[in-house]
Amino acid sequence: MKSTFLRPLLEAAVVLFIIIGAARWVTGLFSKRTHVYQTTVARQMRLLFWPLLALGAGLSVLPAVAMGEGPVSGFEWGLTAGFLLFTMALSGPAVLLHLRYWLLNHETVLVFQPTENRFEVYEAGQRQTFERRDLARIYRVTCRARRTFWARYDYLSLHLHDGRIIVLTSLLTDLEPLASFLRSLPTERSVQAWCWI
């Protein structure tokens, strides 16, 4: 019974994954390289793929044990709870970081083209007016834990002379080229186990 319910869902997910991958490949052939970065579904799925896969694996065990044939022993419930907690510990921090970064940057658009010395930030369609000389300092935070699901979540905080702070997260793009572009400014680098803002 379980396999008759889960098999069509799995087949639909595989077909959807193939269609999205093929559409992305075809559109990539005809599009030119962009210098405008924002939170796209493709970027979010690239960051969330493994955390969501682990979370799905952990959550799939619970209904399998609960709807299984015959009584379930306390030992089996203990193993199920342990596996569920383990997968939550693996994927939970990445999902929390993703939600936090999305709240910060879902309306942010970054226009960055270093060859033309172009660097602009838009919040909710409004350009944040500042020049490079208006930046007092840069705060760059990267993740120390390289082999975790949340290792690719990092952020860059731009502190302006007028007191404004603009936060750019890894949901927009890879921030290392931007940090290199701003290297002439005073930069404070921090390496943390978990890059919470």
Score class of each variant (00 low, 15 high):
174 D>F: 08
157 S>P: 00
41 V>F: 08
22 A>K: 02
167 V>L: 11
91 S>Q: 03
191 V>K: 02
31 S>G: 05
44 Q>R: 04
182 L>R: 02
24 R>Q: 14
63 P>N: 08
175 L>S: 06
59 L>D: 08
187 T>S: 10
100 R>L: 09
77 W>L: 13
161 H>T: 11
74 G>P: 10
89 A>E: 04
160 L>R: 06
193 A>V: 04
124 A>G: 09
149 F>R: 12
122 Y>D: 02
157 S>I: 00
12 A>F: 15
100 R>P: 05
126 Q>D: 14
126 Q>N: 07
21 G>E: 01
11 E>T: 15
34 T>D: 02
153 Y>S: 03
8 P>E: 10
185 L>G: 10
94 A>I: 10
75 F>K: 09
69 E>W: 12
78 G>Q: 10
196 W>I: 13
45 M>N: 10
43 R>G: 03
76 E>W: 10
189 R>P: 04
136 A>P: 00
143 C>G: 00
69 E>Q: 15
13 A>M: 15
81 A>R: 06
77 W>D: 07
22 A>W: 01
30 F>K: 06
171 L>K: 03
47 L>W: 05
187 T>D: 02
63 P>L: 11
145 A>V: 12
110 L>I: 01
73 S>G: 14
197 I>C: 13
142 T>F: 09
27 T>M: 11
60 S>Y: 14
7 R>T: 15
50 W>V: 07
193 A>I: 05
184 S>C: 06
102 W>R: 11
77 W>T: 05
23 A>N: 11
149 F>I: 07
183 R>N: 07
135 L>R: 04
